[in-house]
């Protein structure tokens, strides 16, 4: 099995250049350690799912990848995280730029209380991605297209983003992340507030976005991890217990703790 893992690891892309490499990452909130010596590689070709019981550190680790933990005063990050081989914690790293390159979608859809159009246009505007209104229109349309929302909102772009349904709001947030042309999209339980149909639409969207962006999704729904990802990382008490090909993790995990969790034998 280990052999098969490493085989499919390389055969998918034929290269070993990873989009994100994390090495020996520790995260503390004051004295409390939330992430313990985690190393992981994430690539463009595969959707990576983070699973594990509540409080195991999935969100904390996810936030290290776009330095969102910087906004939490008690949080302290140790170790090394590289994006395209560049240390994102290097003092020369522009954090605003980094967060455009590494977009994030949260559990609760959080559109700005502005029009649908402005929700998407906001990022490209502040990053100066459009020279004029026509270019901005193109970015807005393309982002909404990619997020699978265009047909539903094209006739009401000036309506408020908050007037959309929950599932549409979440796709709006994904469109907003896409609008600044990111390389990585982090999703923290993006479907947990959505009904099954809206969830299926997000999952289908993730499937379509695969390969265009490196995607990491945190989910407490194991079936969802199995459906949308090709790589799965199981976290437990701040440790990365097991990381591998999703189909292997769900049919033949190598660690007892992983197996107990995914088969519902956890505590």
């Amino acid at each position: 099995m280990a052999e098969q893992n490493s085989q499919s690891d390389t055969s998918d892309d034929g290269t070993d250049a990873h989009k994100i490499t994390a090495r020996n990452v520790n995260v503390f909130y004051d004295d409390k350690q939330a992430i313990d010596d985690v190393s992981i590689d994430v690539d463009m070709e595969n959707v990576t799912a983070f699973i594990g019981p509540s409080g195991c550190g999935k969100s904390t680790f996810l936030r290290t990848i776009n330095r969102m933990n910087d906004t939490i005063p008690s949080a302290r990050v140790e170790g090394e995280i590289k994006l395209d081989g560049k240390d994102i914690y290097d003092p020369s790293m522009d954090v605003v730029q980094l967060r455009a390159r590494v977009g994030m979608v949260f559990q609760k859809p959080n559109p700005f209380p502005k029009s649908i159009y402005d929700n998407i246009a906001y990022g490209p505007n502040i990053h100066g991605l459009a020279a004029n209104k026509a270019e901005l229109d193109i970015i807005v349309e393309r982002s909404l297209q990619r997020a699978g929302l265009w047909n539903e909102v094209k006739d009401r772009l000036s309506d408020s983003g908050t007037a959309l349904s929950g599932g549409q709001q979440q796709r709006l947030c994904i469109a907003r992340a896409i609008a600044v042309d990111p390389e990585v999209i982090l999703m923290d339980e993006p479907c947990s507030a959505l009904d099954p149909i809206a969830t299926a639409k997000i999952e289908e969207l993730i499937h379509e976005l695969r390969g265009k962006y490196a995607i990491i999704i945190v989910t407490h729904n194991m079936q969802q991890a199995a459906r949308v990802s090709q790589r799965t990382a199981f976290f437990h008490l701040g440790n990365l217990v097991e990381f591998g090909v999703t189909s292997d993790i769900f049919t033949n995990p190598q660690k007892t703790r992983t197996q107990d969790y995914i088969t519902g034998r956890y505590g």
Binding site: P253, T256, T258, Q259, D260, G264, R265, G267
Partner: peptide
């Protein structure tokens, strides 16, 4: 990985 022997929550 053989069964841990732990019971299911359900």
């Amino acid at each position: 990985m053989t069964n841990s022997g732990n019971k299911h929550t359900l």
